[in-house]
């Protein structure tokens, strides 16, 4: 499929944050004269095309501009320069600690979110039961959102978004805080969306999830697109460049005997290249990098077999 959903061209965005310095009268007056010249560049000429019916992962280090790119694609942030063309319905964006007014109850927020997106009161009346069912937060729906845990918030936000059936869904780390069963249901719902020719763009640090679920990946580095292409390639490239583990190895550590492992680690720590060792042993290079990191961080104990698969980069 080559029909584009969103085309972003040469996007530049700079934030003008309020500097956290000790305020003095002199500085404050100076600020009045030449107002806040210090900017933080978030996106520095990023371009990308999101195809319809695709699942796209955006990877990159903290501060690379991932969330900003998502906001620009969603149209909630107008870039300083560059263009964003959206074909079809405006996308729905979900971020951590999302669209909520904390003083209001979960139910009020459901209506507020739906009405802001242009749904009618009656439509929301119909959707409310389905949202409650998907979110599985029980009677907490009537409590102020301030009392929710971060997991409950993202459950509710995700349930709202999925029930509203967007054409394009932009997710910013929203699945990182849910528990295992919710994560499973969410991924199934996302797969369903993609199968119906919907488009999903997700910012994630869970490289295994990205690799498993996404067709395409965008690697952002310092506000620019460093690489864009098939998810497998981009993510392997990214994980070896940044030494971030993919996490879910092709060959689980349990299948290795202790001697092999110790030997491998010793060679790693004495300077052997992960890529060479990978070629030699047939183990995924990312896994070897993950091992080295775990060893450095947690010592020998950390090398006990782990099967949690997802999110062991956290």
């Amino acid at each position: 499929m080559t029909e584009p959903a969103i085309v972003a061209t040469d996007i530049h965005v700079a934030y003008r944050p309020f500097a956290d310095r000790v305020p003095t009268a002199r500085r404050s007056i100076g600020r009045f004269r030449h107002r806040e010249t210090r900017e933080v560049v978030a996106l520095d000429g990023a371009s990308c095309t999101i195809e319809r019916g695709e699942a796209v992962a955006i990877v990159g280090r903290n501060g690379a501009g991932k969330s900003t790119l998502l906001r620009v694609l969603a149209g909630t942030l107008e870039p300083d320069s560059g263009t964003v063309e959206v074909f079809g319905e405006p996308p729905t964006l979900l971020q951590l600690g999302v669209g909520f007014n904390g003083r209001l109850s979960g139910k009020h927020n459901v209506y507020l979110g739906g009405l802001a997106l242009g749904h009618s009161r009656n439509e929301m009346d119909e959707m409310l039961p389905r949202i409650e069912e998907f979110a599985e937060i029980g009677e907490a729906i009537d409590r102020p959102v301030n009392t929710y845990s971060s997991g409950m918030r993202s459950r509710l936000a995700f349930a709202i978004a999925m029930t509203l059936e967007p054409e394009t869904l932009l997710l910013d780390e929203i699945l990182a805080v849910g528990d295992a069963s919710f994560k499973e249901r969410s991924m199934a719902a996302l797969q369903d969306l993609v199968d119906r020719a919907g488009t999903v763009v997700m910012v994630t640090h869970s490289l295994s999830q990205a690799k498993r679920f996404c067709d395409t990946a965008i690697w952002l580095d310092a506000g620019r697109v460093k690489m864009i292409g098939p998810a497998d390639e981009v993510i392997s490239e990214y994980s070896s460049a940044s030494e971030e583990p993919i996490g879910s190895p092709d060959k689980p550590p349990g299948e290795w005997n202790a001697k092999e492992r110790t030997q491998l680690i010793r060679r790693l720590l004495t300077g052997a290249k992960p890529a060479d060792l990978a070629a030699e042993s047939g183990v995924d290079v990312s896994e070897i990098i993950a091992w080295r990191r775990r060893f450095i961080e947690g010592g020998r104990k950390a090398l006990r077999p782990r099967f949690d698969g997802d999110d062991d980069d956290e």
Partner: peptide
């Protein structure tokens, strides 16, 4: 400011 989360996540005419 008090509805900043709504603004960041949703696209709607802000004059509302």
């Amino acid at each position: 400011v008090s509805n900043s989360k709504l603004i960041v996540n949703m696209r709607f005419p802000r004059l509302l």
